[in-house]
Amino acid sequence: MSLMQRITAFLRSPRGQQLVDRGRREMSKPENQARLRQIANRLQSRRR
């Protein structure tokens, strides 16, 4: 099995679904969205 197939299989498993749901809940929080924007801005400024 390739790496992508293994990742896809995991994400479809019950444990994978729990992690996806947790990630969605965490990213719906405004403080986490702001933290992610700050990280993205730092990464973009390094590329220039």
Rank of each mutant, 00 (worst) to 15 (best):
R47S: 15
S45G: 11
I39T: 05
A9L: 12
R12W: 01
Q44E: 15
R15W: 02
V20G: 06
Q5W: 03
V20Q: 07
R48K: 15
L3M: 13
I39A: 03
I7P: 00
R42V: 04
L11N: 05
N41T: 03
P14H: 08
L11G: 05
D21F: 09
R42H: 11
N32H: 10
E31F: 03
R46A: 05
L43V: 14
K29V: 06
A40S: 01
L43K: 11
E26G: 04
M1F: 10
R48P: 02
G16Q: 04
V20W: 04
R35F: 00
M4A: 15
Q18G: 10
R6V: 06
A9H: 03
L36T: 07
Q44F: 05
E31Y: 01
Q38G: 06
A34F: 02
Q5V: 10
I7Q: 04
P30M: 14
L3P: 00
S28H: 03
N41S: 12
I7S: 02
A40L: 04
P14C: 10
R15F: 03
R46F: 00
L36S: 09
L19E: 12
N41V: 04
G16F: 01
Q38A: 10
G16S: 05
R48V: 07
T8G: 09
L43M: 15
R15E: 14
Q17R: 11
Q18E: 15
S13I: 06
P30E: 12
A9F: 01
L36P: 02
E31S: 06
E26F: 10
K29W: 03
R12Q: 06
L43W: 07
V20A: 11
R25G: 15
M27A: 15
R24S: 10
Q17E: 09
G16T: 01
Q44C: 09
G16C: 05
F10C: 02
R6T: 08
I39M: 05
R24N: 14
S28R: 06
N32T: 05
R35D: 00
S13A: 12
S28E: 13
L36G: 02
G23A: 14
R6Y: 01
R6S: 11
L11S: 06
T8N: 08
F10L: 08
F10D: 04
V20D: 07
P14S: 10
P30Q: 14
R46G: 01
L19V: 07
D21P: 00
K29D: 09
Q17N: 11
E31C: 02
Q33C: 03
S2F: 06
Q17P: 05
L36I: 07
E26K: 07
F10R: 00
R42P: 03
R25L: 15
L36H: 01
S45M: 13
R15L: 14
R12P: 00
